[in-house]
């Protein structure tokens, strides 16, 4: 992996974006297995209908995991200092998620050259599902 270089980067630069496969019921079942989160809201259509919700929907942390992949495709994971997300909308079955990021600040934090990133996970229509930020240390 060619690592991004602090001096060469500028505020406004974008990370390579990533678009996922459509989130399927199988995706949700696999995420339940991998994460240990078996909440019926994500798996059991009979349960969600009994709650007046039309269909199962994705775990919020699935979208954050996709944003994590956006980060680790850009830098080695050890460079990530912090990573936070706000969940703003529910991801429905069938939606592809488009993960994007850009540099919003160059800073020195604890003696390290870092960039602050603004990240978004949205559907293909541009509806933001998660808004996130991260601080990444760069040589």
């Amino acid at each position: 992996m060619t690592q991004p270089n602090f001096a060469a980067l500028n505020v406004g630069d974008a990370l390579p974006s990533m678009t996922t496969e459509p989130v399927s019921r199988l995706t949700l079942a696999l995420y339940a297995t991998g994460s240990g989160d078996h909440h019926p809201l994500h798996l059991d259509q009979d349960y969600v209908r009994s709650k007046g919700i039309p269909d199962v929907f994705a775990h919020g942390m699935l979208g954050m995991a996709y944003l994590g992949r956006l980060l680790t495709q850009w830098v080695p994971q050890g460079a990530i200092r912090s990573f936070g997300v706000r969940f703003t909308a529910i991801t429905q079955v069938g939606e592809r998620l488009v993960c994007t990021g850009k540099i919003v600040e160059k800073l020195v934090q604890n003696g390290e050259n870092c960039v602050r990133l603004e990240l978004t996970c949205a559907n293909e229509a541009g509806e933001a599902k998660h808004k996130a930020d991260a601080v990444v240390a760069l040589a």
Binding site: K51, M61, M64, Q77, I80, S82, F83, G84, V85, R86
Partner: peptide, 16 residues
Amino acid sequence: LGKMLHGEQSFNYYQP
């Protein structure tokens, strides 16, 4: 817990 939503989540990393 039936009325619970995940609002925000953040992490700080010190060691892998």
